[in-house]
């Protein structure tokens, strides 16, 4: 039960003057229930990669298996795949179109052909999960603030109750508080429902404390694929490809260089604090 990508290649506008290889020989496996982060610079191919996972973009070559079934096999239902692998696009609020928020969230489950009461039950649950207050349900999506619109749009995907949830830069353009709120909610969902979550971002800082695994993309290749602390050990290389490790990593690396035996793998401020205090305790200050 997982998503498996084998030798995936994708070439944009093949056969024209604008031909461009966007993805080169990608091999990945996303096991069920994992919280994965995909990181890369603009144009590194991360958005293209995730659009393959629910069949919106067809690979030029290679195969993708969802729960062991090849999604490019004849007769494989893309519609069903899309109901199982939910993809939240960048700036998802641009897809809102209905007269009110609630009806808009109903769009997804309605397309699955569910009965009306089931559709509404799912919409209510999804809206509750993203933490949108009930007074907004009957408002036009265009009356909402940026963060609220974003939540409504995410709820639109959640209402389809996917087994895998992929989010493309869900926090782009939000203020720090809105960002933390949304990420916390996603982490909570992952915990509560045990769904597989893939979070795409260009900021390490944002996702470091949530994900179990980080995939770093560069120019259409997978550059690193490991648990966060291991990936951050390559902070110099990350910098070279225009990314950065969390600030804590830099502090810890610098302390170590100056002779303190701190844990350079610390990723949150709390972990770093504990590690530094432990060190100081040993030295006896």
């Amino acid at each position: 039960m997982s998503i498996k990508i084998e030798h995936l290649n994708y070439i944009y506008s093949q056969g024209t003057a604008y031909e461009k290889q966007a993805l080169t020989d990608i091999n990945l496996e996303l096991p069920n229930g994992q919280f994965t982060g995909i990181i890369g610079h603009t144009g590194s191919g991360k958005s293209t990669l995730i659009q393959h996972l629910n069949g919106l973009v067809k690979a030029t070559s290679g195969a993708i298996y969802y729960n062991g079934e090849n999604i490019y096999a004849e007769g494989y239902s893309m519609k069903e795949l899309r109901s199982r692998v939910g993809l939240v696009f960048q700036y998802p609020e641009y897809q809102l179109f209905e007269v009110d928020v609630f009806t808009d969230v109903c769009f997804g489950p309605k397309n699955l052909g569910l009965p009306k009461d089931e559709v509404e039950a799912r919409a209510y649950e999804a809206l509750r999960q993203v933490g949108l207050k009930e007074k907004y349900y009957k408002k036009s999506p265009f009356e909402l603030s940026g963060g609220q619109k974003r939540r409504a749009a995410i709820a639109g995907i959640l209402a389809m109750q996917p087994e895998v949830l992929i989010l493309d830069e869900p926090t782009a353009g939000l203020d720090p508080r809105g960002r933390d709120n949304i990420l916390d909610q996603i982490a909570l969902l992952h915990e509560e429902r045990g769904i597989t979550v893939v979070l795409v971002s260009h900021s390490m800082e944002d996702i470091a404390k949530y994900v179990e695994r980080i995939i770093v993309m560069q120019k259409g290749h997978v550059r690193f694929d490991d648990e966060p602390r291991r990936v951050f050990e390559h902070y110099r290389e990350l910098e070279q490809i225009g990314l950065a490790a969390p600030q804590v990593t830099y502090v810890m690396q610098e302390l170590k260089k100056r002779g303190m035996q701190v844990d350079t793998g610390a990723m949150t401020i709390e972990e770093a604090r504990a590690s530094i205090l432990a060190c100081m305790g040993q030295v006896g200050i």
């Binding site: 659009q51 696009f89 897809q95 389809m160």
Partner: peptide, 13 residues
């Protein structure tokens, strides 16, 4: 293209 894909992800046909 983007909006079409986004709606297809929500099961639009």
């Amino acid at each position: 293209d983007k909006i079409m894909k986004a709606q297809m992800a929500r099961g639009a046909d």
